[in-house]
Design a protein around this nucleic acid. Structure first.
Lengths: 201, 201
DNA sequence: ACCTGAACACCGTTCAAGT
DNA sequence: ACCTGAACACCGTTCAAGT
């Protein structure tokens, strides 16, 4: 019979997501399964489907929580409103720091792919946009007389670039010979890109 | 009894890899399985393990073939030895073009992760290095009086950046509001980064 | 209404048995 | 030596049955 009524739906959702995060933190996204999640919280497989439509929905919701944590870290990095040029570097460092300390959860955001044709919920996209807006804001302060269109393009180029450095940096498989530290490569990208951007005002 | 001795070991390896590539091309890396591969080539599961240690080895070898194809496309893009500034843009465009036309196979290179502790064979790393050397070579021509150390750092920053634009660009999940084309974002990254790099000679 | 647990259709991998 | 196919330990998902 099990633990009927011991948890509300919302509590069940919460402990399931917590269990999922623990499993991912130790064994990566590949170490996550419905059966392992329910074993951890003392339920059986069926009950997971009372709360999540399927395992993809569970993963998406877990990733949304990771995006919340990441946004908190990024926002904290610029909380004392440093000058824009420093703020952008602080954001990049905070992103790298999160990727370094929360590697499996951070990786899960990019590893997980919805089945063909399905799209992520609006709440997820909103969290991505919100994180991205932090960079865009600092770039706008740095280049006050550039068009919003220019700023959005530059922010996307810069942030994608920093993300690329992190992704390739964490993938030992792609570790180039004579590997450089992620921080060093990011600095090169950031410094030269910003110099070029400012120079072509 | 099946098709005993119809193929040599090498032929079996070849048709298995071909079947794997077809499966990935239509259904992505998630659509690949040992059982689907053998069903396509008229063998049973066991025989796959005569040729590959496990499915990870099969995927790594498939990805090496993709890296070969990618290198061919990149090398062709600079075969007529354009001036370095154009060559770098041609390499970036060729990379985007490959990602666009061979999306699932290209993605599989980055999606696949070896189990904890295992590393990719040297032949794989060599192919990554070889591709990377193309960019490094053009950057060295572009900045003749920079140290090899500077060049390698810049090449890594630039190539990681372009890769980041592609990876985020193909992940609809991360499609930012008012999405820009991958080519447009790459151009911004490339132009401003190179301007900054040249300016700080 | 909540939850179980058997059932189904899949996995990757191994290995005794057949030719 | 090559290859099969049953067996094992896993998956995700569904749903009749129990409380």
């Amino acid at each position: 019979m099990g633990r009927r009524n011991e948890h509300t739906r919302e509590e069940l959702r919460e402990i399931a997501l917590q269990a999922a995060e623990e499993l991912v933190a130790t064994d990566g996204l590949a170490g996550l399964s419905t059966r392992k999640v329910v074993a951890r919280i003392g339920y059986t497989v069926g009950s997971l489907y009372m709360v999540f439509r399927n395992i993809d929905e569970l993963i998406v919701q877990m990733n949304e929580r990771t995006l919340d944590d990441l946004h908190e870290r990024l926002a904290a990095a610029v909380a004392d409103r440093p000058p824009p040029a420093l703020a952008i570097r602080a954001l990049a460092q905070a992103y790298i720091g999160f990727a370094l300390t929360e590697t499996p959860r951070w990786l899960a955001i990019y590893q997980h792919r919805l089945p063909e044709g399905e799209t992520v919920p609006d709440s997820f996209s909103a969290k991505v946009t919100r994180m991205f807006a932090l960079v865009q804001h600092e770039l706008a302060l740095l280049c006050p007389h550039r068009s919003p269109d220019d700023i959005s393009l530059a922010a996307r180029a810069l942030w994608s670039g920093i993300h690329g450095v992190c992704i390739l940096g964490f993938d030992q498989k792609l570790e180039f010979v004579g590997g450089r530290s992620i921080a060093e490569v990011t600095r090169s990208l950031l410094d030269h890109y910003l110099t070029g951007l400012m120079g072509t005002d």
